[in-house]
Design a protein around this nucleic acid. Sequence first.
RNA 1: GCCGAAGUGGCGGAACUGGUAGACGCGCCGGAUUCAAAAUCCGGUUCUGGCAACAGAGUGCGAGUUCGAUUCUCGCCUUCGGCACCA
Length: 857
Amino acid sequence: MQESYNPATVEADAQKLWEQTGVDRADDNSTADPFYCLAMFPYPSGKLHMGHVRNYTIADVIARYQRMQGRAVLHPMGWDAFGLPAENAAIQHGVAPAAWTRDNIAHMRGQFKSLGLSYDWSREFATCDADYYRWEQWLFTRLMKKGLAYRKNAVVNWDPVDNTVLANEQVVDGRGWRSGALVEQREISQWFLRISEYADELLDGLDALEQWPEAVRTMQRNWIGRSRGLSIRFPVENCSACEELEVFTTRPDTLYGVTYLAVAAGHPLAQHVAAKREDVAAFCEECARGSTSTADIETQEKRGMPLGLLARHPLTGDILPIWVANFVLMGYGTGAVMSVPAHDQRDWEFARAYDLPIRAVIADASGEAPDVREEAYVDKGPLIRSDEFNGLNFEQAFDAIRNALAEEGLGEERIQFRLRDWGVSRQRYWGCPIPVIRCADCGDVPVPEADLPVRLPEDVVVTGGASPLTTMEAWKAVDCPHCGKPAQRETDTFDTFFESSWYYARFACPDANDAMLDARAARWTPVDQYVGGIEHAILHLLYARFFHRLMRDEGLVDSDEPFARLLTQGMVLADSWSRDLDGRKDWIAPDRVELQRDDKGRVVGGRLVGSGEALNHEGMVKMSKSKNNGIDPQAMIERYGADTVRLFIMFAAPPEASLEWSDSGVEGASRFLKRLWRVVHEHLDSPRDALVDDSARGELRRKVHETIAKAGDDIGRRQTFNTAIAAIMELMNSVTSLREKAGFAAVQEALESVCLLLAPITPHIAQSLWQALGREGVVAVAAWPAVDESALQVSAVELVVQVNGKLRGRISVPVDADKDSILATARADQNVARFLEGQTVRKEILVPGKLVNLVVA
RNA sequence: GCCGAAGUGGCGGAACUGGUAGACGCGCCGGAUUCAAAAUCCGGUUCUGGCAACAGAGUGCGAGUUCGAUUCUCGCCUUCGGCACCA
């Protein structure tokens, strides 16, 4: 009898074999068609979590499948090593961010290896390596010279107690997370990249990304937000500082419905009045409290105050009040809006709250003025109450009003983007130094190429206040490359999105010493398959698309887009449990919860293991530290083996959907692999000359080849790995039920096929059983099995018979049966006949190979 | 607030192009094996009625299109992701 399945030894043996044979190495010079498979590299937070396991397993399955298709696969891994958590760890534990980060990397690399991920580790790098970040410093100096990098003022969250800039995440209920101080918005000078210059191209390029999820493309389109409208200037009647107020609108057809204008608190007009009036100053100050986050600002109660300034309507000459309002964003457009409460819901609500007039100027479907007493009427329609523009539709009104304004010199057509330039300055230590020298005489001077990299000093103490770089006088002091006089280094570092915007290209040539990228980058990019979380749908993916074009314009790559195909995987969720502890929620880890079921097996509650205390079920939520519901991948690998964890994760849900962790689901995956192991060894012990039942043999062979076709389609085209696995499980069920009769050869073929089909998903056990079945070599690079069309042949097919769309019977007909004979067979079915009795068949519908529907009346 | 997505048995999910709702797995129930248990194997399992054959209902809610809707259209509800300094 065979030994039983022991994942630990099976996995160690397979991993050793891959290392010895070097099957995971990407060959830059291969003649095979290249395939670049990439999963979003991780932030080295300390240890692997289940979200990582899911992300990297999905990409690994795809990489392994493509290897079996004969492609030359590049599947690399590295570390997105700069970022906030290293500084937090440094404050908490007194370790330098660099040391903390590198320790984490070492630990996580070991965890990756135990999962059997087929990476070419020779290409590994971390973004905190000077050999990496020197090239983004180089690119930045190029962008400065091209005018694509520039400095301007922008608001940040300022903690007045810690005297530091806070990330949005560090602002909790309007207060600094450490100090508890009320956060203020403060304007400081920062570096920006002119992504707006590429807005049109980034928008239009989405059309060509056919292998991206439609949802991601839509989100990016809306984020870029190209809109056509008019820029309109309202003359200001009574202000010494300002003659005109400029607004942008996409609805110039509603111009006659404007009843007031509103500006942001940061708008020069509001600031001008605030300098003279205390109440306005107090209001503006209040608006500058709290975080800079758009979500916070837009969910605030809408508030405002009249500035006492009046504007003249550019066409009617009516006098309109100018308000300052907290819902107008300074960062978008001109920081001022024309308000049409009758036809814009937000304006309507504000007008209601402050008793401003509401004037309808667009007719509804009946051609009359719409009822705007309860809400705004936002649809388009013919104009009314608009003088000579009455009766025009939206398009006509747009053009006519544009022309009328142009004649007055008070407006013109404009394309407006929602997309803002990318602020890349961070007032943080653990990031890539911005390669700029500030000279009193020469201004901002890029660090000369020969002096790159500007190394980040790693031997520092982080306190939680201002970045250590700001006080490192020796590091800051440098001679100006222009004039040679003493000058100062820029102490800000780059946004970490900077590093993650181009790492995919560097994997093609991580050892290039003379340039950011060499010719290998053009060979491997664009990435054929990119895999990562849906949470990156906008920012990361947009920045990478932008960077790819920047690198293209430097002649470093020869394509427009970085990622040809994109798979956005869902989150990993787990049950969460709590108990009340001194009025607060105490979150209980899932392994300390004993489930209670009713007599139908339904989970009705949970108790604390040991004490039996009843717990509150807090639902299936994302695994997180705060909910204490994380499952440690390492523990699972040690208990069940990597193959079981991989199989469960790929089986439990389609990759885009969220995945609910289930201990019994893992048990099920483990059970399947144990059964597979046993069936293979029982087969090897079985007699090779047993009698063969031809019908059983044909049935098994058909199932084998149907499964090969389905699994290949599911993995390669549809990327629904869960259904591929279900099909393989069905095949194994057929093997168990038919193996007695189908004969040794058919069972051997079935089991070899299962090894091949499972090789991308559970690579270790596939290798072990492949060898047990007497096959030589590494299954990971064996050819994906081919479908034997002759095995798929059938003589009869089952059709469903419906009467008036309701299922009434099933019939079996020869595959080549003609329509008349099929219909005759259908009518002859006993149950069908019952429903046809006394009725006239009005219509007969035949869907070949599927169904017959008889419509009676 | 704005943008995007999802909602199907006791549970995770399947149904790919408008054509058999519930594949596959989990759980539960019954049986075999066992001194016993675990493990394993076999059978059943959407709900209601019925011994059964079968019938009726059923894919978040409400309408609509169609011979036929989980799938398409419109309106709503709930949950989740993103919102520019978490990564």
